[in-house]
Amino acid sequence: MREIVFDTETTGLSFAGGDRMVEIGCVELVNRVETGRTFHAYYHPERNMPAEAQAVHGISEAFLADKPVFADAVDDLIDFLGDAPLIAHNAGFDFSFLNGELKRCGRPVVNAKTRMIDTLQIARSRHPGAKHTLDALCNRFGIDRSHRIVHGALLDAQLLSQVYVELMGGRQIGLGLDSSDPAGQVTTSVVSAPRAARPTRVFAPTEGELVAHRAFIDKLTDPIWGAAASG
């Protein structure tokens, strides 16, 4: 099963209010194992970058000056996403910007009802009452986030992919690669290697042990098995 974990960075909190997506990072999973395929892009927002947003992700107007607008670069993103389920943390936010950008340039939107997986909702159901930020979940599962100085779409998607796997039960041992996929993609499956039957081991006492045992038994007085036999 192919899934895409993704994250976005934006100019603010509301696409409907005029904010835009400036970065997206995507990580491909097959059977909940990272394949190594990723997608990462920056987009010119066609507006200014508020200081409070830049403080979160570190992306400046100057950095975005030569980046393409979303409509001019959307085909590569659509091709990467395909029809896979899309996983995000607080996914409603990321979907609102992704679909807002798609709709703005006349492209079909992603059906959130059938394709959206929200790790925030999963975390709340698995661990009620705990903290559910990405940082908190990384700490819970022992995922190294020391290189996360500011928010970054691809880095956050890579961290979230590990969190998602842990939320869904953790990594399985015995992962094997199956290169026989007719589409030419490497797929993964959980396999159990059969164990070879061990030969029967015989633990026979030596003659010296038998002699020592008989000598020990002869020293016993009124053994319980004698009482049972006489009863």
Rank of each mutant, 00 (worst) to 15 (best):
C26A: 00
E9G: 06
R32G: 00
I59P: 00
V30M: 11
A55Q: 14
E61T: 12
K103M: 13
G92E: 11
F95E: 08
V27I: 05
E46R: 14
A65S: 13
D19N: 07
P50L: 03
A71L: 05
V33T: 14
C105G: 02
V69F: 14
Y43S: 01
A65Q: 12
P50I: 02
H40R: 06
E46V: 10
I59T: 01
E23L: 04
F80Q: 05
F97D: 06
G106F: 12
H57K: 06
G58H: 05
A62S: 09
A41Q: 15
H44V: 00
L64M: 05
D83V: 09
G18D: 06
E61N: 13
A55D: 14
G58W: 09
A88S: 12
E9S: 06
I24Q: 04
D75C: 02
Y42I: 01
N99V: 03
L86P: 10
A65I: 03
N31I: 02
D66N: 13
E52F: 15
A62W: 06
G25A: 00
G106K: 06
V22T: 11
V33P: 08
C26S: 00
D75H: 14
C26V: 03
K103Q: 14
A16H: 04
G18S: 04
F15P: 09
A88E: 07
V27W: 12
T35Q: 06
H89P: 09
N31L: 03
P68S: 06
D66I: 00
R47E: 14
F15W: 15
F97S: 02
A53K: 12
L29A: 00
P45N: 14
R37K: 15
M21P: 00
G106W: 13
P50D: 00
A88C: 09
E52L: 14
M21A: 10
V56M: 05
A51T: 11
T35C: 01
V30F: 15
G18W: 09
E61Y: 11
T10W: 08
S96Q: 11
E52T: 13
G82C: 04
T10N: 05
F15S: 06
R47D: 14
Y42A: 03
H89V: 09
K103V: 10
G106V: 11
F95I: 03
S60D: 07
E23W: 12
A71K: 12
M49L: 11
A55K: 15
S14Y: 12
D75E: 12
L77W: 10
A91H: 09
E28F: 09
V22H: 07
I87Y: 07
A84I: 10
S14P: 03
F70T: 07
I59V: 10
I78L: 15
D66C: 01
G106N: 07
Y42M: 10
L77Y: 14
E28H: 07
F95N: 08
G25Y: 04
L64D: 05
A84P: 12
E52K: 15
G92C: 04
E101Y: 12
F97A: 02
D75A: 13
M49H: 11
D66Y: 10
G12K: 08
E34S: 08
G36L: 02
S60R: 04
E9I: 08
H40S: 12
P50H: 05
P85Q: 08
D94L: 03
D66F: 10
P85L: 04
N48R: 13
T10S: 02
R47G: 15
T11A: 03
Q54A: 15
H89G: 09
